[in-house]
């Protein structure tokens, strides 16, 4: 009898332990969960369930230990969009780019603030390969995504090859025709570097 009890106990323990490991939708058992979960607002995470972790809660507001969400924000998010018109501080005192989407003729006049150096060109190439080449390919033939997206022009076609650096910068920032705006993904300085490299692709 005792033998059977021992065997059953072992199997039960194994089953319990097996359920501790994470797989699929289950993150597994947490060790000292109070150390895992952030007390301050945690960006890119939000636990809106007020009862989550109630079983070990000693919060003064009586909510669950793991509740982590800001009810004052839109959609109770922990992050929020900067106030409209917010100006980003830059280390090199570059003023923010203020031209709107329709000011493209004006934008074409703006010169590239960066000098022509091999380092900047190399960095521009690297950034081009991160952000542009899946659509624009080598600048002549569309990349893998560009083929599916369709309508990706060659930089060196007569209609494109003489577009100014300011124009290219503006197009990256706000998009043009079917191309989306990439200003939120790429900082102005990086955009100007990419422009430097695109300039060489126009001449190929």
């Amino acid at each position: 009898m005792t033998n059977r009890l021992k065997a059953a106990l072992t199997i039960f323990t194994l089953a319990v332990l097996a359920s501790c490991t994470a797989k699929g939708d289950d993150p597994g058992l947490e060790y000292a969960p109070q150390m895992y979960h952030s007390v301050p607002y945690e960006p890119l995470t939000q636990i809106k369930d007020k009862d989550r972790g109630e079983w070990l809660s000693n919060r003064e507001d009586g909510l669950g230990e793991f509740y982590n969400s800001n009810p004052n924000n839109e959609y109770e998010q922990n992050v929020r969009v900067p106030v409209a018109g917010t100006v980003r501080r830059t280390s090199n005192n570059v003023l923010p780019y203020r031209l709107g989407k329709d000011d493209i003729a004006l934008a074409a006049e703006i010169p590239n603030p960066l000098p022509d150096t091999p380092e900047i060109l190399a960095e521009g190439k690297r950034l081009y390969e991160l952000y542009c080449d899946h659509c624009h390919g080598n600048g002549k033939e569309a990349g893998k995504v560009g083929v599916v997206f369709a309508g990706v022009p060659s930089y060196s076609s007569p209609a494109q090859r003489n577009l100014s650096e300011g124009h290219v910068f503006h197009v990256i920032t706000h998009g043009i025709r079917r191309m989306g705006a990439h200003g939120s993904q790429i900082s102005p300085e990086k955009r100007w570097k990419i422009v430097k490299y695109v300039k060489t692709l126009q001449q190929q």
């Binding site: 332990l17 490991t21 994470a22 699929g24 597994g28 058992l29 895992y36």
Partner: peptide, 22 residues
């Protein structure tokens, strides 16, 4: 075998390796 499983299981407590939520 049981001991190995138990020890492995204990080591996996708090480890979320293979977590694959939908």
């Amino acid at each position: 075998l049981a001991a190995k499983n138990v020890i492995d299981g204990l080591y996996m407590v708090g480890v979320q390796q293979n977590y694959q939520p939908e």
